Computed example of a mutant assay.
Amino acid sequence: MAEETAVIGHPVVRLSEVGKGFDGTTVLDDISLDVPQRQFIALVGPSGAGKSTLLRLVNGMHVPDSGTVATLGENPATCSRGRLRALRARVGFVFQQFGLVGRLSALENVLMGSLATLRLPRYGVMSYPRALRIRAVEHLDRVGLADRRFQRCDTLSGGQQQRVAVARTLLQSPELILADEPVASLDPAASVLVLDILRRISAEDGISVVCSLHQIEYALATADRVVALRGGRLVLDEPAADLTAGRLREIYDTAGDGDD
């Protein structure tokens, strides 16, 4: 019961009446949202609804024009450069385009997830501490790619590359994972595999995940909770188990405005 109280009382993310615009166009308008510990949230909505902007506010890549953002107890907008760097080390970010170095092996790409905690530049797998190399292989094993650890990333399929990116994020030991359209460029089989891995990590490690998705079916199948944006406004926030595909499709009837 004490753990339940902690989950409810101390969200890992809290947005309070947040607004954000670019070049005179409102992208997010009066958004209030709490993300509890250990929850997988699917963030859905049409292109331009503000999903990517919301994730970047949580990570401190953008600063709100109004309202406040609290991420793991810190306000990214008021953090010093050093504190913001430390905060981002606690927040994993999985991008649509993977962000890997193609000419390097899967293992070395995963090891790069530790660079924020290391003092000196690293060149080659063996320049990393042995303990980190062991952990990196363990995380590749968790995403089903330990046997590909020495393979160049540019020779892997898109789904395999995204799984390497997830393993790299895990090496950070994140307390929160943000995923921005992580399966948008993948085929259905690879998409399901990547989302299943993220879901399993959330459940096994107790890590909150906020994952923006366009695919309604994936959101319903994967998430504990679905949050929908349209035109920069929060228009739905309900447990996934209470929703139907038909209700979610209504969110897409009217395209949103602003950057996504």
Rank of each mutant, 00 (worst) to 15 (best):
S105R: 10
G24M: 04
T5H: 11
R200H: 04
S80Q: 01
D30P: 09
G158A: 05
A42H: 00
V94I: 15
L55Y: 10
G48L: 01
I8R: 09
H214F: 11
H139D: 10
L72V: 05
A131D: 15
G158T: 00
L43M: 11
T244V: 08
R38S: 14
R119G: 15
L111D: 08
L120N: 14
E175G: 13
D147P: 01
A240I: 04
L186I: 03
V125E: 06
Y123L: 15
G231M: 01
D187H: 10
I8L: 11
E250R: 15
G67Y: 09
G256W: 03
L72H: 08
E204A: 12
A131V: 12
V91I: 15
R85P: 07
T155W: 06
Q97H: 14
A190R: 08
V183Y: 00
L229F: 01
L193N: 10
V35S: 05
A255K: 14
R130Q: 14
L234Q: 03
T26V: 06
V18F: 11
A190Q: 06
V101R: 02
D65P: 07
R81N: 10
V91M: 06
P188E: 11
V164G: 01
R199H: 10
R103Q: 04
E175H: 14
R38W: 13
P64T: 06
V35G: 03
R168S: 10
L111N: 04
S208W: 10
L28A: 12
V44H: 03
S185R: 09
I197R: 04
Y128A: 05
S114T: 05
L115F: 12
T26G: 05
Q39S: 12
Q37H: 13
Q151S: 12
K20T: 03
D187P: 09
N109T: 00
V125S: 02
V12H: 06
D242L: 11
S191K: 09
Q39R: 14
P239A: 06
A184E: 06
R56W: 05
R119F: 07
A221Y: 00
A223K: 08
R85H: 12
L176F: 12
D237L: 01
A131T: 12
E108T: 04
L33N: 04
R149E: 15
A42R: 00
D187Q: 12
L120R: 15
